[in-house]
Nucleic acid binder design. Structure first.
Length: 567
RNA sequence: GCGCCUGUAGCUCAGGGGAUAGAGCACCUGCCUUCUAAGCAGGGAGUCGCAGGUUCGAUUCCUGCCAGGCGCGCCA
């Protein structure tokens, strides 16, 4: 069965199949019409009196049959075969819900699965065999990384982890913009600061980068090379300075991301692609396919033929006949596909949404299917200080860098904070609030649950409990408090949760899940003392606590946040 | 003008064609001689931006409007 890799999924599929069979029986007897399209979605109701599982399928069918939900539900229940299944009872409720009440055998199996899978619990094989290239951050190497980069880094890394857990083979890639205009401006800016550091007269160009980091680079450059670069003729000096600047800036980016707990699989150089002649190839292919034309001295791509709202220039009408950015970007994405990835995901900033159509038009022009590229837009981060908006501009100099953010709030809080919000919603980041490093931060709520469990085990060890009692030794039926049942159900949902969140590309939902797990654990902790008089009960609860710890640890690992043993 | 995103509790935000709309923070009341009180239990707090439409049922889907943010280059 496809993707049925958790006990919860198996149980849901079993119930769905039994409903489908019941409907078929009803159809044979003419109680329901033949042409009935249905999708039986099994849900977990929020209220326990609504059963362990529920579905609204009868109501959806009632619409097609022009009957009402309760009637259809009644027909289904009449034909429903629940023998040889954990289903004890089925209720018809409300306007036509089916509520299923199950015995605990499935929970016992689900818990045993967590125990045996341990650190890999949460994995499924839903997208086994898919090779995904996830490109994100890809910040220009012309300045320090900012909080938007930090947001994209959190979202991309988490999404990559979740996709991996769902069975995809994922490659995290950073596209290095080490060619093009902005690298020349970077070199010019550094050159000016370099000359100035040597006491020479030099004027910063108007579009130059003003930040102090350029001055720091200049001082280092003087340390390393003295004034030797001044003796070079201008073009060579420019190139040498550019190379130095890029190397240093990229090393800086890597360091910052490493502090964030993020390591990319590949750093793909734009320049290497440019040097390989891949650009000309793009232009040739599009030309050969008759998808280009000349106008106003420029070469245009008929991107409107593929859904873009206007045609795009490929080769400018300037003296050098230089290519626009579309060409290298197409070459880059073509290269990705040629490397054997069957699906590409780009995470981009909101200023790029107009870019989606032209890029996918280009890829279609090159003969690739539209679906091979998926672009996720991560919305803006606005920095606020109390009520005041902090302007961010690379040239102006005043912005909060990713480094500063990490120093102020730490990677755990930063990542958690960015992931809490849905990626496409705007985010106001209150620096003053974040700097408080207060215990009010929701990240502590989840981490605290993990630390509490670790503490129980330290204590249990000291008191000589069997802390390694697994499913075969534990008396499972001693776990019967409502808080224990809620916790077990929550833990059983983890693999499916991971898969759904990764499929929807909404990492924020895993945060919600973690908060819920932490919440039911804290309730359990308060209501049910783990280490008590009754050894059997204690060991059963230790077992459950261990399972909760596994899930919390696995989830924290997926979002790149540490799981502390104590706090 | 066109395009994208957003509008839900005092604040920051989840959710989502159905059964009583949620969380964190803030506020109020209880709970530590026992595994970590960064916790638990309870309480107050909402015309789900406005108006139409589809539906047995809309806060959720569709259309229009209002408000806020962002983008619309032969820059990348």
């Amino acid at each position: 069965m496809q993707g049925a890799s958790s006990v919860l999924m198996e149980v849901k599929q079993d119930i769905a199949q039994r409903i489908t069979k019941a409907v078929e029986k009803a159809q044979e007897k003419g109680e329901l019409p033949q042409d009935l399209s249905m999708e039986v979605k099994i849900e977990i109701p929020s209220r326990s009196e609504q059963g362990d599982f529920a579905t609204g399928a009868p109501m959806a069918m009632a619409r097609q049959v022009k009957s009402n939900g309760r009637t259809v539900a009644g027909i289904i229940v009449k034909h429903l075969d629940i023998d040889d299944s954990p289903v004890l009872r089925v209720d018809i409720a409300g306007p036509g819900f089916l509520n299923f009440f199950l015995d605990r055998s499935w929970l016992e199996r689900a818990m045993a699965r967590i125990w045996s899978e341990g650190p890999s619990y949460g994995r499924s094989d839903y997208c086994r065999g898919r090779k995904v290239l996830l490109e994100f951050v890809s910040a220009n190497p012309t300045g320090p990384m900012n909080v938007v980069n930090a947001r994209a880094a959190a979202v991309g890394d988490c999404l990559a982890s979740l996709l991996e857990m769902s069975g995809c083979q994922v490659s995290r890639e950073f596209y290095v913009n080490d060619a093009g205009n902005q690298t020349d401006i970077l070199a010019d800016s550094l050159e000016v600061r370099y000359m100035q550091a040597l006491g020479q007269d030099a004027q910063m160009p108007e579009n130059g980068y003003q930040g102090d980091y350029i001055k720091d680079l200049a001082n280092d450059l003087v340390q390393e090379k003295g004034s030797s670069l001044c003796d070079l003729p201008h073009p060579q000096r420019h190139d040498a300075i550019k190379e130095y600047a890029l190397e240093r800036m990229i090393a800086w980016q890597k360091r910052t991301l490493l502090d964030y707990g993020l390591e990319f699989d590949t750093w793909f150089s734009e320049k290497s692609l440019r040097d390989s002649g891949a650009h000309n190839h793009i232009i040739e292919v599009l030309k050969a396919k008759g998808l280009t034309y000349e106008k106003d001295g420029a070469l245009w791509f008929k991107s409107t033929e593929f859904g873009d709202d206007k045609d795009r220039v490929l080769v400018k009408s300037d003296q050098q006949g230089s290519a626009t950015y579309i060409v290298p970007d197409l070459a880059y994405h073509k290269n990705k596909l040629e490397r054997g990835f069957d699906h590409l995901i780009d995470i981009l900033g909101p200023d790029h949404h107009g870019y989606i159509n032209r890029l996918s038009a280009g890829l279609m022009g090159l003969g690739y299917p539209k679906e091979c590229l998926e672009i996720l837009i991560v919305q803006t981060v606005r920095l606020v200080k109390g009520k005041e908006l902090v302007k961010m501009s690379k040239r102006g100099g005043e912005f909060i860098t990713m480094d500063e953010l990490l120093e102020d709030v730490g990677k755990d809080a930063a990542r958690f904070f960015f992931l809490m919000r849905s990626p496409e919603s705007h985010l106001d980041f209150d620096i003053d609030l974040a700097r408080l490093q207060s215990n009010e931060n929701p990240v502590y709520y989840v981490q605290y649950a993990h630390a509490r469990i670790a503490s129980i085990f330290r204590q249990a060890n000291q008191e000589g409990f069997n802390v390694a009692a697994g499913p075969s030794e534990v008396q499972f039926n001693l776990l019967k408090d409502p808080s224990e049942l809620s916790l077990m159900k929550m833990l059983a949902a983890f693999p499916e949760e991971v898969h759904e969140v990764s499929k929807a590309r909404e990492p924020n939902r895993i945060i919600k899940y973690m908060m819920d797990v932490a919440s039911v654990f804290h309730t359990f902790y308060t209501k049910c003392r783990v280490l008590g008089e009754d050894r059997q009960v204690s060991e059963a609860r230790l077992y459950l606590a261990r399972l909760a710890q596994i899930v919390i640890a696995n989830a924290l690992r997926a979002i790149g946040v540490s799981a502390p043993e104590s706090m």
